[in-house]
């Protein structure tokens, strides 16, 4: 696997003229770390992820992936290095069957059929969905769709994974499976989520977004334990930490005792 690297410098972007969603946003990431991206609804998390893969080219500032600027001429190469898991799995699963969908990217990159086959099998095995291989996409449950969508991205063998709300629509069992998968995958990952417990479980570093900027970049534990900081930005402590912090501060919740 190549050395993965993301460098974002002074990036500004807006869907409408005069209304910026991202303002002079900067951060860097490299290696194989898992990075959580948190922030209120509408703060621009999904937009930032889409900018990284060049879906919205009209931004100002610079974005480099593996040293290559995100520009039209580099898009094919950049997109072969980054896997993007959409928030809505239905947007990603457009082929008729699971097998075909997972094979979509390797086939598009012109890999020989034997290699496509190997990658499909490996990706499905990694997400624990090998048994769904011959199923039709429309017959999958929400959780199965999510895992198959992740398999469809893993079959590209990307160096970087961008995930938009990966735990949405997952039941507790599949959520635990997802956490296991995220721990096992060696890629550099950016996980945008409102699921603070997922971020706490999987990410060593967290970026907190507010008002179009990264307002805090640091260790996940440190950020997610800071109740005041989270509250100031419309977020809440992870459920797992809520009880601990209340007990530590002497505020025993009698309603649940």
């Amino acid at each position: 696997m190549r050395e993965a690297e993301i460098a974002v410098e002074g990036v500004s972007f807006g869907y409408e003229k005069g209304r910026k969603i991202l303002k002079e946003l900067s951060f860097q990431a490299s290696g194989t770390e898992n990075i959580g991206l948190i922030g209120e609804n509408g703060v621009g998390k999904s937009t930032l992820l889409k900018l990284l893969v060049g879906l919205y080219p009209e931004f100002t500032g610079t974005i480099r992936i593996g040293g290559m600027p995100v520009e039209k001429k580099n898009l094919a190469k950049i997109r072969s290095q980054i896997g993007y898991v959409f928030q809505d799995s239905d947007s990603q699963l457009f082929c008729a069957s699971v097998d075909e969908d997972v094979a979509f990217a390797p086939r598009n990159y012109g890999l020989p059929e034997a290699e496509v086959e190997r990658r499909v099998e490996r990706a499905l095995a990694m997400t624990g969905t090998l048994h769904l291989r011959d199923r039709k996409n429309y017959s999958l449950s929400g959780g199965e769709k999510k895992l198959v969508a992740i398999a469809g991205i893993l079959s590209m063998s990307p160096d970087i994974l961008l995930m938009d709300e990966p735990s949405a629509a997952l039941d507790p069992k599949n959520r635990r499976r997802l956490i296991g998968i995220l721990h096992e995958l060696p890629q550099l990952k950016i996980i945008a989520s409102h699921d603070m417990d997922l971020i706490l479980d999987t990410c060593s570093r967290t970026l907190l977004m507010a008002d179009g900027r990264i307002v805090r970049d640091g260790a996940t534990e440190e950020i997610l334990r800071d109740g005041e900081l989270l509250e100031a930005h419309g977020l809440e402590l992870p459920l797992r930490l809520q009880g601990q912090i209340e007990i530590m501060s002497g505020k025993m919740r009698t309603d649940i005792l």
Binding site: K50, V53, L55, A76, R79, S80, I82, G83, Y84, F86, D88, D90, S91, Q92, F94, F104, A105, R107, N108, Y109, G110, G152, I153, M156
Partner: peptide, 23 residues
């Protein structure tokens, strides 16, 4: 919106008309 997302998803997984049809 959804059709656009489907298209984006195709693009991000290496879809390019010419190569796709050739295959």
């Amino acid at each position: 919106d959804r059709a656009n997302e489907v298209y984006e998803s195709m693009l991000l997984r290496g879809f390019s008309g010419k190569r796709f049809y050739q295959r």
